[in-house]
Structure formats: C-alpha cells, structure tokens
C-alpha cells in the first residue's frame, strides 16, 4: 500500500464520467439516446438517460457554468454532485475529502450527507427547497451552524447577522419568519445559509430564475461579488446566458443529457461551435 504523500490537486471539485439513468441502468439503455438521437429515452429499455458521460474540474475561486434547456440534464448533474440523488455511474471527488483521492459516491449515506456541512453547499431555484419557511432568517442560518457544533446563542446570532448583512438582508428582518419575505429576500437568505460554514464548493441551481428582472439583477450582482471574494469553487446551473455570462469563466453546454460543447464563457458566447450552442446563443441574443 502506498502511503507516499501526494500534493493535493489544483481542483476543488472533479467529476468524471457521471451518468444518471432513471429506469434500467444497464448499458443497453444508453445507445440511441443523446443529441444525435434527439432524445433521452432509450429505444431499447425505455429508461431515461438524464445525464451521461459528464466530466469537468472546478478550481478554487473559479465558477463553471452548465447551460442547457430544461430536460438537458444540467440540474440532474447538480443534484448528483449535491448528493440529493445518486448517480448511476461516474466519480465525484472533492479536494476537501482525502485530498481528492476519495470518490464521494463510495461514502455511506450518512458521511455523504455530512459533506453538506463542511464541503459543499447548494442554492436551489426554489428557496423552499433550501430553507424552512416557518423558521426565522436567523434560525435558518443557525441550522448549518448548530449542525457543526455551534452551541453559543450569542455567537450564532453574531454569525447569522454578519451573513445576513453580507447578503444585504436588513437586520431588522433577522427574527422574522422567512415565509414573510419576498422572493429575492428569501433567495438572499438561502445564499447566506449556504455560505454559513464557508464551504469550498458552492452549487447554484438557477439561483435567479423566477425572480423579477430587477430583483434577479440584484441577486446576481451579490453572487458575483461573493464568488470573487470567497474563493469558493462554484458550479452555476442555468438556462440563461446572461446569468452564465455574469457569473462564470468557463461553461459546459448540455443537450439531451450530454455535454455537447465546453469552453471559456466569452468564447461560447462569441464563437459557439456546436449547432445547439449556436441556437442557444442566437435565442439569447433575441
């Protein structure tokens, strides 16, 4: 057994060969699906190949975008990384877990859930998915803090207040139930909660979709600042090129469960290669 010390990898998150099939997970389900076939449904087994052969690395301080229409598999990929569901195949490594030598898919469910405390956080499109609406803004942030052992009420409140201040939620709303908050404000609370334990990896799933344009712009500005300041490695899943353009440096384009193109974000916008990417960009340009 080799015990030689290996330098930790440059990436914070690495995904290789990730696949997620709903239904028959056997290899027969894969042929006949994907962009060339124009479908994610296996002609042989009827299984849904929601994502297949997805791979990428994200460095600390870097934001990677995944763009595609609904049903392209981008959110599936995010949920598989977050541990909300288990991939059918592939590996997911985090630098914070065994210096990147451990495929987190091999961890037991409890350890896998534990990653959400220190190693990665997710912000969902629907704040109700990431927050308890019947708990105060401060209480929602107290959740991840107490989960890692914070037991001092005053310090929990200080930390919650500083996070809420950072996401520009007025402190006089700290003790109000999140249910009474506007959509944009809820999203800010969700972001504050996700950042509570300074995770090295942050997953953002359509973080501004569903918000009014002006509200969305404010949340995007905030996210952009946070990504720059915190040095977090981020994966931004969105159908909206404006979001991807503002937040990310590199991007993957997904269609029918596959990555059809990847590149620097400005290159994808200015010189898309794949027909589907060109179609997306043309649509975004109106």
């Amino acid at each position: 057994m080799s015990t030689a010390t290996v330098a930790p990898p440059a990436w914070a998150l690495k995904v290789e060969g990730l696949g997620r099939i709903y239904g028959d997970p056997s290899p027969e389900s894969v042929p006949g699906t994907g962009p060339e076939s124009g479908t994610v449904i296996s002609p042989a087994t009827g299984a849904v190949v929601a994502a297949w052969d997805v791979g990428f690395e994200v460095a600390p301080g870097e934001a990677l975008g995944i763009i595609g229409e609904s049903g392209s598999g981008k959110s599936t990929v995010m949920r598989c990384i977050a541990g909300d569901e288990d991939a059918t195949t592939g590996t997911i490594n985090l630098r914070g877990v065994g210096d990147g030598t451990v495929d987190v898919r091999t961890l037991d469910p409890s350890a896998r859930r534990g990653l959400r405390l220190h190693q990665l956080s997710a912000v969902y499109q629907d704040p109700a998915a990431g927050l308890n609406l019947d708990v105060t803004a401060g209480g929602n942030i107290a959740d991840p803090l107490t989960a890692v052992g914070w037991r001092h009420y005053g310090r929990i409140r200080e930390r919650a207040a500083s996070l809420l201040r950072r996401v520009e939620v007025p402190l006089d709303r700290m003790d109000d139930l999140v249910r009474t908050f506007s959509g944009g404000m809820r999203q800010r609370v969700q972001i504050a909660k996700a950042l509570a334990n300074d995770p090295p990896v942050l997953l953002l799933d359509e973080p501004t979709t569903g918000l009014d344009a002006s509200v969305a712009a404010g949340v995007l500005d905030l996210l952009r600042e946070l990504l720059e300041e915190t040095g977090v490695a981020a994966v931004v899943v969105s159908h909206d090129f404006a979001v991807i353009d503002l937040l990310t440096r590199r991007v993957l384009v997904m269609q029918h469960g596959r990555v059809v193109e990847s590149g620097l974000t400005d290159q994808l916008l200015e010189d898309p290669q794949h027909p589907y990417s060109q179609q997306l960009v043309a649509a975004a340009r109106g």
């Binding site: 590149g263 620097l264 400005d266 290159q267 200015e270 010189d271 290669q273």
Partner: peptide
C-alpha cells in the same frame, strides 16, 4: 485579436 485572446477558437 479575438483568436489570440481565445474569444474565438
């Protein structure tokens, strides 16, 4: 210019 900057491939 854009090729050099890789905005174009």
């Amino acid at each position: 210019l854009r090729c050099v900057y890789r905005t174009y491939l």
